[in-house]
């Protein structure tokens, strides 16, 4: 019998580190909700350990990291490392925020799927998530 329930995509929107600006994270969370995804939002000032713990407990398909503090080269690699260590290597990681192009390239080499700068439309983010989940 055909599976009658479609599995909604589960997304964790995370704000790591000392960064109190969550308007962008909330706009993205809302946009992905409207695209039919289940979005877990955990609030401000999360440690990489917390973010990875939640990602595993909630069995999310993807983690979107919103970061405007400039500490992305420390926080993002740590999140990637912990995900790998705890069996979450299949969880796709996206980064959004103020990230210089040269850093974005390095992050992508480390395993980040995509880096979204200011002004990225919600459609682009949604399509990127759907496209990569189909492939993986």
């Amino acid at each position: 019998m055909g599976n009658q329930r479609i599995r909604p995509i589960r997304v964790l929107i995370a704000k790591p580190g000392l960064d109190g600006h969550d308007r962008g994270a909330k706009v993205v969370a809302r946009g992905l909700r409207d695209a039919g995804m289940e979005v877990i939002y955990t609030g401000l000032r999360q440690t990489p350990d917390q973010i990875v713990t939640v990602a595993i407990e909630e069995d999310v398909d993807t983690v979107g990291i919103s970061i405007l503090s400039g500490a992305h080269m420390t926080l993002v690699p740590e999140i990637l490392r912990l995900l790998k260590e705890r069996g979450g290597e299949n969880i796709l990681v996206y980064v959004g925020g103020i990230i210089p192009d040269s850093d974005a390239e390095i992050l992508k080499k480390m395993g980040v799927i995509e880096v979204f700068g200011p002004g990225t439309s919600l459609d682009v983010i949604r399509d990127a998530i759907i496209k990569h989940l189909k492939r993986s």
Binding site: A29, R33, Y41
Partner: peptide
């Protein structure tokens, strides 16, 4: 309408996460 959801209860449970 969309079938999506915002799951935000954990915001209040941060201290329990670890």
């Amino acid at each position: 309408f969309s079938g999506g959801a915002i799951l935000g209860d954990r915001i209040r449970m941060n201290d329990l996460e670890l």
